[in-house]
Nucleic acid binder design. Sequence first.
DNA 1: CATAGAATTGAAAACGGTTTTCAGTATGAG
DNA 2: CTCATACTGAAAACCGTTTTCAATTCTATG
Lengths: 144, 144
Amino acid sequence: MSIRVTSWLESLQAHGYRLTEARRAVVEVVATSKRALSPLEVYEIARRRYPALGLVSVYRTLEMLSALHLVQRVHQEDGCNAYLPSLEGHQHLLICERCRRVEYFDGDDLEALFARVGEQTGFEIRSHWLQLFGLCQACKQAVS
Amino acid sequence: MSIRVTSWLESLQAHGYRLTEARRAVVEVVATSKRALSPLEVYEIARRRYPALGLVSVYRTLEMLSALHLVQRVHQEDGCNAYLPSLEGHQHLLICERCRRVEYFDGDDLEALFARVGEQTGFEIRSHWLQLFGLCQACKQAVS
DNA sequence: CATAGAATTGAAAACGGTTTTCAGTATGAG
DNA sequence: CTCATACTGAAAACCGTTTTCAATTCTATG
């Protein structure tokens, strides 16, 4: 059992949520995924180990995990309802356009840019959003 | 009449689309907006000058403008279906969280970061997506 | 300017993903 | 073990978007 699964389940419990089979199944799928998954994908995968699962519970669990900042929503050209584990402090994503695999990277050097833009525009910058898209090593070779 | 409105209409015509009242109304609203507008917002505003307009035509016109790269879709926490004029070469957005006004800025200094991330991960980076969120000068004062 | 034929229109129906409702069930505190 | 209640899945409702379709509007051509 992945350490992340355990930690998410503890986190849910610590916030007063009950640990149910439905939630366990959803957490196990999302916490260990290396790709961003849509609610329907989570549903289909999680149902392999807990066939009684309802799609509604997937939505509800994703909402909780999102509120606890354990998962983040990923936006792409072809849809904005995919979820991915949130790694503390590594908020930027690099997504393979072919296989959808995601890598995390940090963007420390962005602070200077933000400061400059804030100064030029008079905005108080409060958050940002950076995603890169491309081909992962495996897909790069597969395509060529 | 804004230069951008004229230019968009010419662009539509040059691509074989007819110039109709519905399209004119939609183009006039979107091309001159400083905020990202949802299809429904476009519809409501455009109907002031062309009441016969149907919501369907808004969707269809936005799709065309998007295909011609004249508008871009803006993604935000609370929705991903807002459209904004695309300014050639200035692809990054700074969005006011309060009034939704948008500023454009360029992010030339990002190339180095992309190169570094590409090298570290083995990805071939093909595109990117950067948005900043904050408070514009006016809203900064209004809030405090 | 008039005509004809194709592109375009708006209304309504269909669609698909998400949310709400609800009666039954499983959880976990005591 | 018992009980109150959080939680469940199914079905219905919802809502933004897309499709369908008959009527209308453009615009190329004569």
